[in-house]
Design a protein around this nucleic acid. Sequence first.
DNA 1: AAGCCGGGGTC
DNA 2: GACCCAGGCTT
Length: 346
Amino acid sequence: MSDAFAARLLAWFDHAGRHDLPWQHPRSPYRVWLSEIMLQQTRVATVIPYFQRFVAALPELPALAAASQEQVLALWSGLGYYARARNLHAAAKLCTERHAGKLPRGIDELQALPGIGRSTAAAIAAQAWGARHAILDGNVKRVLARYHGVEGWPNLPRVEKALWALAEGHLPDARLADYTQAQMDLGATVCTRADPACLLCPLRDDCVARREGRTAELPTPRPGKVLPQRHATVLWLEDAHGRILLQQRPPAGIWAALWTLPQADDADAAREWFARHLHGDFGLGEALPPVDHAFSHYRLQLQPLRWRGIESRLAVGDNEGLRWVAPGDLDRLGIPAPIRRLLVPA
DNA sequence: AAGCCGGGGTC
DNA sequence: GACCCAGGCTT
């Protein structure tokens, strides 16, 4: 059943929604899926150039399934949350095995694929095929928390459960693709976190937060916490040709499977690593300005030490994922953003 | 239920 | 700096 919420939202969407996003033209299941994965915890403006580059290189699902992990990670390099890229790649291969090389239409089959949870499965099904399922992303949580005056941090299981029920209750009977897009457009362009444009909102007449002047308090912000500070030393080694020694990170953990500078916990550990892998004078390493980087759950300060003209064959075998990389080849590898900024200044 | 997992906009 | 963004997975 449909209520005023959906009807007003759809009427607003027709004249004020976003109709020119890259994944809307053409709106194929593969492009919808890719966009939804890239957009997880990532803003539209950030995603667009990555999306364009990705579909230019891998235009359809079979091409993604056949691609190397190295290429997929290179295309994802800088976007963050790299498990998304590994899951996307694995899911494409599963589609080749299970679904004849296409994305499955059923919500359960979609959600069974790695990287696709309840909300993403619903968004794909609604946008690709008009299926009737509720989404609950950050935009919808904010809109519903304000519209219904829902108290509590939206990611608390109890609150999230209530929001899912409200989202289900507003589902219209038709135009599910537009309705899904409309919710996200309203959250992104009108019902913004700071300073929402309530005068332009099609839902303002029945919005609890608007009526009670509490848009600044809803949704309830996340409980604050202090992020731990960690330190590491990275070794920037260049040979006589300007090639850089990179090391592939382990398949799990932070920056999994990405290529970074060899990293040690501190200066002493860096000295040991140097002695174990190279001949030469550790003391000739130039200390560059430290690099500060923030993750979701800790802060990291990197202390780069740089050597030039290192004898390249002195690096011990490649069983530790070590590789000398020419500067022109850095684009072909997945490299964490702060490391890429260090190696390739803007 | 809580932690892990990136990077950048925006205030 | 703090907060959060078209979240999902693991423990």
